[in-house]
Design a protein around this nucleic acid. Sequence first.
DNA 1: CGGCAAATGTGGACAACGTCAAGATGCATT
DNA 2: AATGCATCTTGACGTTGTCCACATTTGCCG
Lengths: 208, 208
Amino acid sequence: MPEEKPYHHGDLRRALLDAALRVIAEGGVAGLTLREVARQAGVSHNAPYHHFADKAALVTALVDEGFAQFAKTMQFAYDAATGSALDKMVSVGVAYVRFAMEHPAQFRLMFRPELRASDGCLPLKHADVPETSSGYEVVIRALQAAQREGLVAEGDIDHLALAAWSTVHGLADLILDGNRDIASTPEEATALARMTVEVMVHGLAKRP
Amino acid sequence: MPEEKPYHHGDLRRALLDAALRVIAEGGVAGLTLREVARQAGVSHNAPYHHFADKAALVTALVDEGFAQFAKTMQFAYDAATGSALDKMVSVGVAYVRFAMEHPAQFRLMFRPELRASDGCLPLKHADVPETSSGYEVVIRALQAAQREGLVAEGDIDHLALAAWSTVHGLADLILDGNRDIASTPEEATALARMTVEVMVHGLAKRP
DNA sequence: CGGCAAATGTGGACAACGTCAAGATGCATT
DNA sequence: AATGCATCTTGACGTTGTCCACATTTGCCG
């Protein structure tokens, strides 16, 4: 994808992506329209077609950016957290939900396959992010570290990771789709996420 | 909503709802089109407007049906499960994921607020289902029973329920959105759900 | 330095969509 | 039998995604 030196506009590709995020932020995913994006960027309704094959391609580009940004956020949460590997797990989980709250447009797009180009890629292992630095890998490594520290029971690491991922993903989805009635501010969401992740870590069942 | 005695068609409202589910099953949520629904039902492109105010109203009707069906499924899973209240929890969680696998069209619609009429209702407490028999209430009651049996630690029941719900909801969402690569059959999904729910019940952390 | 090809942007066109308006058709009640 | 309402059809309008033909700018190459 060569888009380094734009000719007429300046950087229309970038402007279109930003405009698309703005449009989604204002009108939701359903309100995302190629023509409206072009309008907001101040170009004709056909200009986008010189930068994206079609609407799905634009969405896919946003998704790619989202996953890259997302992986960075997860890695940062992991690195910044102090304490045991379990504490790092909690930190990563909270960061997941915070990311959804702070980037709802990208997050909704990232896990909505009917909009993006059907390249069949898995959300958990997105092509645009090197396998070893995806958000999913961060969870895997955190779990492995916790296992090494003897804090997490042995067991199929993929199952454990899927369970942990499901929990934060589900919470994020519910918060976003619930019209923010579950948690209306990032702070509330953070508190909720912390409690939820800690339930996942320690389990529903009473400890003996 | 009075639709007992149809005049010309037989029961066009019902036929439209069924056709809509078929359309979604074939072309995904993005392919859901009022005109295509009408076509599949064998009526003109405007006939639906005598049964639904607009497209969102049709979707809302599907969502309502979905939540009712869903609540029944959850209740049945709870009643049918044998063993402790924790076993019942697992059964309900598995039923959640199975429902998503077996009714993907409804499930996707149910948790996608941008499509339905903006009545601001929460997914977890849907208006069409009596408060005391919603799927969420089943989880609440299961948790309360487990607490009474001393199997679940004391604590804010809403937080515990949200954590449990998030886990199965997230898993269902990931399975559905991952183009079925995580689990391609209901059987696989069931096995995965069982493992995931058990991780939630017992926790990631090693038991002493 | 001049000119050409590719990259970029514009306008018009078309089918499909959601929706509105107006007319036609059949059922039910009086 | 006649009236009235619920139901369905046809036609229209504005908007969307996408294709096409054309204009303009840019970088490159002789």
